[in-house]
Design a protein around this nucleic acid. Sequence first.
DNA 1: CTTGACCTTGACACCGGCGTCAAGGTTCGA
DNA 2: TCGAACCTTGACGCCGGTGTCAAGGTCAAG
Lengths: 125, 125
Amino acid sequence: MRIGELAARAGASPRQVRFYEAKGLITSTRGPNNYRDYSETALGRVQQIRELLDAGLSTQAIRGILPCLESPRDPIVFEGVTSETVAALERERDRLTERIDILTRNRDAIAGYLTELKGRATDPP
Amino acid sequence: MRIGELAARAGASPRQVRFYEAKGLITSTRGPNNYRDYSETALGRVQQIRELLDAGLSTQAIRGILPCLESPRDPIVFEGVTSETVAALERERDRLTERIDILTRNRDAIAGYLTELKGRATDPP
DNA sequence: CTTGACCTTGACACCGGCGTCAAGGTTCGA
DNA sequence: TCGAACCTTGACGCCGGTGTCAAGGTCAAG
């Protein structure tokens, strides 16, 4: 798959795709014409990258957790997994949990405010 | 409270505090010497702003949901609340929920990967 | 009164994620 | 064969959130 098709199917721009590749988030092979060629799995990767970027993560953070996001990871990678890697992943997981907690707290605050508003709006008219 | 103390107590830099004020996230009064003077509640505000920024939200998004985050909001503001405002808040709430879902999915993926790793590491030694 | 610590506004610069345009190479159909 | 549509790399610029430094004003302690 070429970059245009990949970008279109992933809902991104070619510029973004090249950017992600430059950051090491995806890879491509090159034909004799020097055109990038992307595998089908790259499509899911780009979609996931878009999701995470929209959710406020940086490319560095995404790069750190990408090994976990391989969909058909029947051949799990054990070879290069050091205790360093595991520790980094655990830190990343905890950072995500913290983020989730903060967002949840604030969303609930909004929701509570909204229900208070509605309660008063319909109570004494 | 002056800007230095506020910044120090909120774990931020004066530069950041001024930036948040310029964006309309906090307010200050001015004495005759033109120094900014912050109320005690501004401290909590700045801490909350820092949290939300670290969680990946923009100052615009934060500005939109700040009305809900007044801690002692016994005198709830009904006056300027149009159906427009309510709709905007509901959209913001839904956007937060979406973000939370994405982050949760990915955190769980990391956690699953980690448990798989640990399972194999301790199973057949 | 002077010194040092704080405040003011303003400017310049950085970084990350991206748009956009330029100058060229490749492919494909009319 | 030639133009359109795609690709390449490279550069410049924008925006949001910050660091930093400059050139001044204010204030309290010595």
